[in-house]
């Protein structure tokens, strides 16, 4: 790795940190814009002005908003996101108890979708215009333009109602053997994968087609190399950067997708935790979950950009 690349990457990471800071400011401002405050909500109608004032100073709500923002941000930096307003539990503990579930769901979806998407993308690029290319493209348009809950309900209708193979709800605690785990994860992962595969395959196809039109491929063709050899040995190493970029960008879809999928299958992850927080207006928990999601999103976008920087041949010297 040379100096130009490392400088670009360090700049990009710095920009990412700045964006994260602005995002935290936006989240904090939106969640604190309404005049009604947590103390009022906790005590309800029966609150006397004295108890209200006491609780306010206990919660630190009598401080000016910028002081509260700095306190909140400082807390996040040392791993303290405050306490839930509904049950008084530590937000970090709540998040830690759910995070492994969401991460394993995301990991399964990634493990399944990446190989499938790459094969489809490369295959349809190799045989551009064939029936396989056209039908996979049609399916991809379908997958990205319908709501996730349609895909999920169709999956439930087929696999749980008609065939009776799977249960419509995720009973995560019953997943002890591999077979049981497969049953629990099959439908949520299938739903997430349909959109993931569609996006990734389209971007991979574009990246491979881009390479296939370059002179070195023509040279390899004239040399008499087989199509498989050209794609695996000549094209793929050169398309690796754009493909890695495509994978990282597509995976950022997961952060929105899990919200719907966890809710439909009643899966105990971070997204259902946040949905509950939104409907009970548990603002500290909403803030904590939102920051976690935005952090994950920024990491993926950052990785996509770094892949692009590293793979840019003009920077290699």
């Amino acid at each position: 790795m040379n100096q130009t690349i490392s400088r670009l990457i360090i700049n990009r990471i710095g920009l990412g940190l700045l964006t994260l800071l602005i995002v935290s400011l936006v989240i904090f401002m939106i969640t604190n814009l309404l005049p009604g405050d947590a103390a009022q909500e906790l005590l309800g109608q029966s609150a006397t002005p004295e108890t209200l004032a006491a609780l306010r100073s206990q919660l630190g709500l009598d401080l000016p908003i910028y002081t509260r923002y700095i306190q909140w941000l400082g807390g996040l930096l040392v791993g303290d996101a405050g306490y839930s307003m509904v049950n008084g539990m530590s937000i970090m503990e709540l998040i830690w108890s759910r995070l492994p579930n969401t991460l394993s769901l995301a990991a399964f979806a990634t493990l399944v979708s990446v190989p499938v998407a790459l094969s489809i993308g490369i295959f349809s690029a190799m045989y551009r215009g064939s029936w396989f290319d056209r039908y996979s493209n049609m399916l991809a348009v379908f997958a990205v333009s319908v709501p996730e809950f349609l895909i999920a309900t169709i999956a439930v209708l087929i696999f749980a109602v008609k065939l009776g193979w799977l249960s419509a709800l995720s009973h995560i605690e019953s997943a002890n053997t591999f077979g049981e785990m497969l049953k629990v994860y099959a439908m949520p992962v299938l739903t997430l994968c349909s959109v993931l595969v569609a996006q990734m395959a389209r971007m991979t196809r574009a990246a491979v087609i881009d390479q296939l039109s370059s002179p070195y491929v023509e040279m390899a063709l004239l040399k008499g190399a087989s199509p498989i050899r050209i794609v695996l040995l000549h094209v793929l190493p050169n398309a690796l950067g754009p493909i890695a970029n495509a994978i990282a960008l597509s995976l950022s879809y997961l952060l929105g997708g899990v919200i719907i999928v966890e809710s439909i299958f009643n899966y105990p992850g971070i997204a259902t935790l946040m949905l509950n927080a939104v409907s009970t207006r548990d603002m500290p928990l909403v803030q904590g979950c939102a920051m976690l999601f935005c952090f994950g999103y920024l990491i993926l976008v950052l990785m996509a950009d770094i892949c692009e920087i590293v793979s840019n041949p003009r920077l290699r010297k």
Binding site: T31, M274, V278, C294, Y297
Partner: peptide, 23 residues
Amino acid sequence: SRAQDALISIPSKMFALIMVASF
């Protein structure tokens, strides 16, 4: 540009949830 970049860094569903939770 900077302000728009910050807004695009919040996934749309997340932004929607924050707005509905707040207002």
